[in-house]
């Protein structure tokens, strides 16, 4: 464990907590993409299957349980409790176009052709594009509530911090996983446009407005 990975995990934890709190306290999931949340639930379930096979540490296990729990809680809030506030019209990204290629890619490019490893690889590929429906929705609505932009900033930062963690681990532990690194770069690059808007607008107290 290193400071980059720890702050990345905490940023990720912050993001999922902000999201659940935002929906719970405002009793509304306006502006949130349910499709991205479904993709994240798939990411966590397929990646954390090793919860039942390998015990790494209390920290590792508890974080995995929290991420799976928070993502299912969010889906429950969005598609059941507050489904009246779910914005179907703007959440129209076709997630089949993300699922099919990532499944195929995971079958073709992986470290070991075993069930757990292919599912882990699929989860890594899917996570790199899972935010697209959310970013697509923000671009369609042309704006995002500030709490939603804080959620996106924390979520985007987590994988950016993981990039630093991988650089550190390459030099300090001579350890690297190319699949995770390449996907992590793609994932972080997808947020660049949003990061720019967040830093130039939201941090100055303005609302996140995309140029129409």
């Amino acid at each position: 464990m290193n400071i980059f990975r720890l702050s990345g995990d905490l940023s990720h934890l912050l993001a999922v907590i902000i999201l659940v709190l935002k929906i719970w306290t405002t009793r509304s999931c306006a502006g949130i993409s349910g499709k991205s949340q479904i993709l994240f639930a798939i990411v966590y379930v397929t990646r954390y299957l090793d919860l039942v096979t390998t015990f790494v540490s209390v920290y590792n296990t508890s974080m995995k349980v929290i991420f799976i729990g928070a993502s299912f809680a969010t889906i429950y809030l969005m598609y059941s409790k507050f489904k009246a506030t779910y914005d179907h019209n703007h959440d129209s990204f076709r997630i089949e176009f993300l699922l099919a290629p990532t499944v195929i890619l995971a079958l073709l490019i992986n470290q070991k052709f075993t069930v757990l490893e292919v599912l882990w690889t699929f989860s890594i590929y899917l996570e790199s594009v899972a935010i697209l429906p959310q970013l697509f929705m923000v671009s369609k609505t042309g704006e995002a509530e500030s709490i939603t932009s804080h959620y996106l900033f924390a979520l985007g930062s987590y994988r950016g911090l993981y990039l630093l963690n991988w650089i550190y681990r390459y030099y300090a532990e001579d350890h690297y996983e190319l699949i995770a690194i390449v996907s992590g770069i793609v994932q972080t690059v997808l947020y660049c446009d949003f990061f720019y808007l967040y830093i130039t607008k939201v941090l100055k107290g303005k609302k996140l407005q995309l140029p129409a």
Partner: peptide, 10 residues
């Protein structure tokens, strides 16, 4: 070969 498939990160 367990090492390569062992992912200790979240």
């Amino acid at each position: 070969d367990f090492k390569s498939s062992f992912h200790d990160e979240l």
